[in-house]
Design a binder for these strands. Sequence first.
DNA 1: CTTTGTGAAGCTATTCACAGCG
DNA 2: CGCTGTGAATAGCTTCACAAAG
Lengths: 206, 206
Amino acid sequence: MKQTISKPARERLIQLARLLEHIENDSRQFITSSEIQNLTGWSSYTIRRDISHLKTECSTKAGYDIVLLKNAIGAELGITEGVKKCCIVGLGKLGSALIDFDFGKSYKIVAGFDSSVNRTEILTAPFPLYPTGQMQNVIKQEGIELAILAVPGKVAQDVATKLAGFGIKGIVNYTSAILSVGEDAIVENISLIDALQKIASLHAKN
Amino acid sequence: MKQTISKPARERLIQLARLLEHIENDSRQFITSSEIQNLTGWSSYTIRRDISHLKTECSTKAGYDIVLLKNAIGAELGITEGVKKCCIVGLGKLGSALIDFDFGKSYKIVAGFDSSVNRTEILTAPFPLYPTGQMQNVIKQEGIELAILAVPGKVAQDVATKLAGFGIKGIVNYTSAILSVGEDAIVENISLIDALQKIASLHAKN
DNA sequence: CTTTGTGAAGCTATTCACAGCG
DNA sequence: CGCTGTGAATAGCTTCACAAAG
């Protein structure tokens, strides 16, 4: 079986790909593992091993070819494979702030949902907004794979369970709730309070 | 030397504390490690070991005392130690959406910054808004420890470097930039695109 | 001489298995 | 019995040290 890349390595490679994108236009062609170390803080050993998982020849005496490396990561991690359809669930302050967010080429918001019809009528977006009742239909019809969850914490688990039932494959969780969904869906937590507490706990220990 | 809790364990405990807070009012006193397993997906072994690091007696035959456990986590991770002052840097769509966010008791936003004076004058918030030029003064004077970074990606690294120079101890990075700051500051990344790509890469491999 | 790529070692985290306690 | 707590075993990740290549 094809050797699967470990989770930490995958996460670093995803970040690395974005980093490379940013420096792509700096008119440099190559980057070395120790330069990446300086930019990211990861050790050059780790970076070299991560890249070696890609099984691609994109290195020379001068380091890695920036564009080639970026493409290799994209290919291996399936980042560049077409456009994934997403929806925003919950259009309060946070959800509606994401309406104009730049999602790049690989992800496209095709729907927004809110329990308040008032909300869906007042807001304007480059994609249609629906009341929550239509989630199932729209998700099925559009073939939406990913959901960005920005509802109030109290209803987050309920909505997440529904989304998983409707065939959503991944949920980006902006709420402070800890979600459990079945095997079929993946949850990625993006909690501001979590992040603050991680930082605080590190300071407390040292 | 005091045995330090590993990073993964710390992150789980932080989430666990919040989970316990949510179920605190469900009129139950105890919870078992296998119930936590069902709610979170972490194995009961791991949960028991995590809790054992707290060196607290909060268990009985019926499981863990919910309130006692929550407090023990808070104490060990320094989550409950007073109020930490935070600021929001960058008051665009995303930054200003965080103005009304509920930060709980432990974190308090005491300032917002934006490079556009226009922006700081138009917006209203329960804390003062300043032009970026005043960052250093305000951070020093107020004793602000944490920053929430929501500026455009292109200037993120510059601003982060400045913040670290001004004595900020932790940055929650909402931008898509990969930041490197010195040893003194900690960065926690909260990138929507990162989250989407993590999910996508998992689907690609399985 | 510099930089990658990688077996081997070292370290960290998770899981197993079971003793101990209520 | 069911539950926690924990040594011991296992698995997973990172670092080291160095061979190979430009």
